[in-house]
Design a protein around this nucleic acid. Sequence first.
DNA 1: GTTTATTATAAGGCTTACCTAAAAATTTAA
DNA 2: TTAAATTTTTAGGTAAGCCTTATAATAAAC
Lengths: 225, 225
Amino acid sequence: MKHESFNESVEMYLKTVSELAAGNDLAPISALAERLGVSTVSATEMVHRLCEKGLLDHTPYKGVALTEDGRRRAQRVIRRHRLWECFLVDFLNLPWEKVHDYACRLEHATDTAVTEALAAFLNHPQTCPHGNPIPSAVGDVAAANDTPLGDLQPGDHGAISRIYPESLLLLDYLAARGILPGQPVEFEEIAPFNGPLMIKIGGETHALGQEIAAHIFMELTDDTH
Amino acid sequence: MKHESFNESVEMYLKTVSELAAGNDLAPISALAERLGVSTVSATEMVHRLCEKGLLDHTPYKGVALTEDGRRRAQRVIRRHRLWECFLVDFLNLPWEKVHDYACRLEHATDTAVTEALAAFLNHPQTCPHGNPIPSAVGDVAAANDTPLGDLQPGDHGAISRIYPESLLLLDYLAARGILPGQPVEFEEIAPFNGPLMIKIGGETHALGQEIAAHIFMELTDDTH
DNA sequence: GTTTATTATAAGGCTTACCTAAAAATTTAA
DNA sequence: TTAAATTTTTAGGTAAGCCTTATAATAAAC
């Protein structure tokens, strides 16, 4: 009956740091704590433990980063997570917007042998149903070459590539509006005073808040013919 | 970050009681503790907690039994466990003797929606790869109509129906010898002084200790034609 | 260069699920 | 029916992962 829940917490912290420090910068502990639903004091404690284990680097007053060990460990969790998402959508026909949460539980309870057998069964998919790349078994990920909707200029167009980071609330919102990877996108305008972005997605125009727009990535169609 | 590990412990206790009290009698706390790899003091503590929650009934100095609530809860865990075993063997091609352990982890991390979608995907199988019946979604199980090898008389024959309860050590042992559900069985003799049982399984004769024989069930072929 | 805001640490506590050691209660067996 | 074995309870402890409150350190803004 040895406790596996330590593992689970570790994995959640590493995964979250990986998301927050996606742009190679440091993840502030406050942001970590908020995303994990934990007090900053608790997060600080845990960060110390993970530093001692050599999984995180903490620069006081700046934030935390994954060590190489931590990075690999996080990517392996993310691999399990995204493989399960593929299975849940493609074979169990579960809703696109729900599988993220289901996979969040399974990812901590999946042996390596199961992970790799699952990858083979699924034919080694490259992305999860939300468009995010699936790391390799040793923790390598393809670098993304896309842009968050928030960074677009009027007239830009292309197609949605991925939703990142994912959360049930966000995915529910997007699913209800048909805002999914693959949908064609045309940027129309941004309302003044940091207002919502007016974006045509799959024929319909949506007013998206900046925060949501930061979670939607697209691949630009190159118009410089 | 609310802890799900309480759930996990509860589920392990309920599952184990369900196994130990299979013959409708009481499961001694000492047996519970041993199977869970925990001190009797710890097991007693936990049993008290589960009694307060209305999941167990404890008769002091006798043992524990599942309440109706506890029984249903245990069966639901067992359902998830056995469905995963089917998937792991039939679709991921993982070894028959290993999937029990893999499923032991997954069973605590599987939402009801995933369980039922999995059942549908698998076409609602009736038994796990080790021959044990899969409880219904509401926790009903078909009563088994088979006999442990230990109870046989010389001359009896039939086919292996299931291995129960399962454990990695036992399954490894049986897999190495081709002792699997479906194999034809012929009882030859029992060595004196509680010696091993000599049993012909799939053409070869095996000397099985009584403890192992108690875990192997068979369906007798009725010879009273 | 202060003030203000953020970040970190310190102190004390809680719960779950474990542990050991020792004493008390009950059952079983001689 | 007394002794032996088992079961339960009591007492005191540990570690992980949380919590709140309060103080100290640093960074950023004015």
